[in-house]
Simulated scan of single mutants.
Amino acid sequence: MLKIENLHAEIDGTEILKGLTLTVNAGEVHAIMGPNGAGKSTLGYVLGGRPGYEVTAGSVTFGEVDLLDLAPHERAAAGLFLGFQYPVEIPGVSNVQFLRESLNAQRANRDEKPLSGGEFLKLARAEAAKLDMDAEMLKRPVNVGFSGGEKKRNEMVQMGIIQPRLAILDETDSGLDIDALRIVGDGINRIMREPTKAVILITHYQRLLDYVEPDFVHVLADGRITRTGGKELAHELEAQGYGAVAA
C-alpha cells in the first residue's frame, strides 16, 4: 500500500529525513518510535504534504500513484488521513460543517452522491457515540475549547466518518488519560483493523501499543529507521531507553 524508498527531506535548509525506507502493506499496523528530533513528525508531515517540508531525494508510492506528485487535498482524496500531535482549532467552523464537507469531497472523488444533512447527522452521531463523545460537541467550532483528550477523540470521529485507507497518527496518545487511551485505542482498532487498510502509529511510548497491537515496531533515529522488530522491541525501548536500543 505504501512504499517509501531512500526518502530525504528538509525544512528551512536543515535535513531531517536522511534516507528513510519503509514498506507498509494493507492490513498492517506499524509503530514508529524514536527520540525527540529524530524525524517522526516530519515523516507524517511529508506524507501529508504539509507546506515547508521539501523532499530532496527518494520516492513515496501510495497504491499505484506517486504520492509526492499529489497536492495535500488529493492525498486525502486518495485515502490518506493524518492525525496531528496537536490538533488545530478552527474558530467559526462547526464540526458538523467541517466533517460533512470533508466526507462529501471524498464521496465526489469516488463518483458517489453527497450525503444529505439528515443522513450525515445520523452517521456523525453514531460515530461520536462509539467514542463516548457528546453529540452536542459536533455543533461546536472544530476543537475550540476542547481538552487534549477531546481533540483526540474528535480526530477519531473524523477518521470513523471519512474511513481512510491509510491513517498516519502522530502521537495520538499524547494528553490522554487511561480511560481516553482505551477508548481511542478501541476506535483505531474498530475503524482501521481491516484487510484493505493500514496504520502508522507515531509514538514515544509503548502504552498505546497495549491497546493497538502493532505488526511491526520501527526505531527512527537521526532521520532513518535503524531497527525493526515486533512489540517486544517497544518494551525493550521502554526499559532501556533510545540510547541503548536505537543504534
Score class of each variant (00 low, 15 high):
Leu2Val: 02
Glu5Val: 15
Glu5Trp: 10
Glu10Thr: 02
Glu10Ala: 14
Ile11Asn: 05
Gly13Ala: 12
Thr14Asn: 12
Glu15Pro: 14
Glu15Trp: 00
Leu17Phe: 02
Gly19Glu: 09
Gly19Met: 02
Gly19Leu: 00
Leu20Val: 06
Leu22Ile: 02
Asn25Ala: 12
Ala26Thr: 05
Ala26His: 03
Val29Phe: 13
Met33Phe: 10
Gly34Phe: 09
Gly34Arg: 01
Ala38Ile: 07
Gly39Cys: 07
Ser41Gln: 02
Leu43Phe: 09
Leu43Gln: 04
Val46Phe: 00
Tyr53Val: 00
Tyr53Leu: 01
Glu54Leu: 13
Phe62Glu: 01
Asp66Arg: 05
Asp66Gln: 01
Asp66Leu: 07
Leu68Asn: 05
Asp69Leu: 10
Leu70Gln: 12
Leu70Thr: 10
Leu70Pro: 08
His73Lys: 15
Ala76Gln: 09
Ala78Tyr: 04
Ala78Cys: 04
Gly79Thr: 00
Leu82Ile: 15
Gln85Thr: 13
Val88Pro: 07
Gly92Ser: 07
Gln97Val: 11
Glu101Cys: 13
Gln106Pro: 00
Gln106Ala: 15
Asn109Pro: 00
Arg110Leu: 14
Arg110Ile: 02
Glu112Ile: 09
Pro114Thr: 12
Leu115Gln: 05
Ser116His: 01
Gly118Arg: 11
Gly118Asn: 10
Leu121Val: 07
Lys122Val: 14
Leu123Phe: 10
Leu123Ala: 15
Leu123Ile: 11
Arg125Asn: 15
Ala128Tyr: 08
Asp132Ala: 15
Ala135His: 08
Ala135Leu: 02
Glu136Asn: 08
Leu138Ala: 09
Leu138His: 12
Arg140Thr: 11
Pro141Phe: 13
Val142Lys: 03
Ser147Val: 09
Gly148Pro: 14
Gly149Ser: 11
Lys151Arg: 15
Lys152Asn: 04
Lys152Val: 10
Glu155Lys: 12
Glu155Asp: 12
Met156Gly: 10
Val157Gln: 10
Val157Ile: 15
Ile162Ser: 13
Gln163Ile: 06
Leu166Ile: 03
Ile168Thr: 06
Leu169His: 06
Gly175Trp: 10
Asp177Ile: 14
Asp177Ala: 03
Arg182Asn: 08
Ile183Tyr: 09
Gly185Asp: 10
Gly185Leu: 14
Asp186Asn: 15
Asp186Ile: 06
Ile188Arg: 05
Asn189Phe: 12
Met192Phe: 11
Pro195Ala: 07
Thr196Leu: 10
Ala198Arg: 05
Val199Gly: 04
Val199Pro: 06
Val199Leu: 03
Val199Phe: 09
Ile202Phe: 06
Tyr205Cys: 08
Gln206Met: 12
Arg207Leu: 03
Val212Arg: 01
Pro214Glu: 06
Leu220Val: 11
Asp222Gly: 01
Asp222His: 12
Asp222Phe: 03
Gly223Val: 01
Ile225Pro: 14
Ile225Cys: 05
Gly230Cys: 07
Lys231Phe: 13
Glu232Met: 00
Glu232Asn: 06
Leu233Phe: 00
His235Phe: 08
Glu236Thr: 13
Glu238Ser: 09
Glu238Asn: 07
Ala239Asp: 04
Gln240Asp: 03
Gly241His: 01
Gly243Arg: 05
Gly243Ile: 00
Ala246Glu: 09
Ala246Cys: 03
Ala246Met: 14
Ala246Asn: 06
